[in-house]
């Protein structure tokens, strides 16, 4: 049986609102295994992004805990895995506008402590793999939406994380480009042996994951 790379138990999260505390997640538990892909669907405001942020360590749950496969194959708190154990792909790419495609990808490696030359070499190789070998020196403003998302994907993968958390990665793309990105995402992630947690509105893309969940009423249930 494959190793667990991400483990979430009893996650709960509520946000303050003028009407009082608004519960978003009430009791979410999830285990992700190495190399698998998991999709999470849900309506707007159902807490998909919040769940992804809790899984990735960008936010703290009010209750429950998250553990991610860290160095030495031990499960650690997600905050210490940011940039290494876990890679993010966002809906609107979130690239640094002043950095070229190559620099954007290398930046993630540099932040993880990889020396500049090695970071650049890894970024160059990954951008070639996602089909942007000829766009290395382009700024995000000179790239199409699909190309930007490819750069974002390369950036998420450059530190060889055990989990990729993708938040609506095709949300800003047209149907055809979205399909291309999904193919690439599933292909490259599988090729690198990483697990994928995909949050999406699209039933079609969600169906392509090996396991599928729906988030509703603060609970995660198999689709």
């Amino acid at each position: 049986m494959p190793d667990v790379v991400l483990q979430a138990r009893g996650l709960a999260k509520a946000f303050a609102s003028p009407a009082g505390l608004l519960p978003v997640l009430t009791d979410v538990s999830l285990e992700i295994f190495a190399g698998e892909s998991v999709s999470i669907r849900g309506s707007s405001g159902s807490g998909k992004t919040t769940l992804l942020q809790l899984l990735g360590g960008l936010d703290q749950p009010d209750a429950g805990e998250v553990r991610i496969l860290g160095p030495g194959a031990t499960l650690v708190a997600p905050r210490s895995s940011l940039g290494r154990g876990v890679g993010f792909v966002f809906q609107n790419y979130q690239l640094m506008p002043e950095l070229t495609a190559l620099e954007n990808v290398a930046l993630a490696a540099r932040i993880a402590g990889v020396p500049a030359a090695a970071a650049t070499a890894a970024a160059r190789a990954l951008l070639g793999q996602v089909g942007l070998g000829a766009r290395l020196e382009h700024l995000p403003s000179k790239l199409s939406g699909g190309e930007c998302q490819r750069v974002a994907l390369a950036r998420a993968l450059v530190n060889r994380p055990s989990v990729i958390l993708a938040d609506e990665p095709t949300g800003n793309l047209d149907e055809r480009t979205g399909a291309e990105i999904m193919d690439l995402l599933l292909g490259v992630v599988a090729e690198r042996g990483a697990a994928l947690v995909l949050v999406t509105h699209s039933r079609e893309f969600a169906e392509r994951a090996s396991r599928r969940f729906v988030l509703s009423g603060g609970l995660l249930t198999p689709a």
């Binding site: 990735g56 960008l58 940011l82 940039g83 290494r84 993010f88 966002f90 979130q94 640094m96 930046l107 993630a108 932040i111 993880a112 950036r155 530190n159």
Partner: peptide, 12 residues
Amino acid sequence: TREVGVLASLGA
């Protein structure tokens, strides 16, 4: 501000 969040997601 959003870039600050992105940098944090990259491990900064």
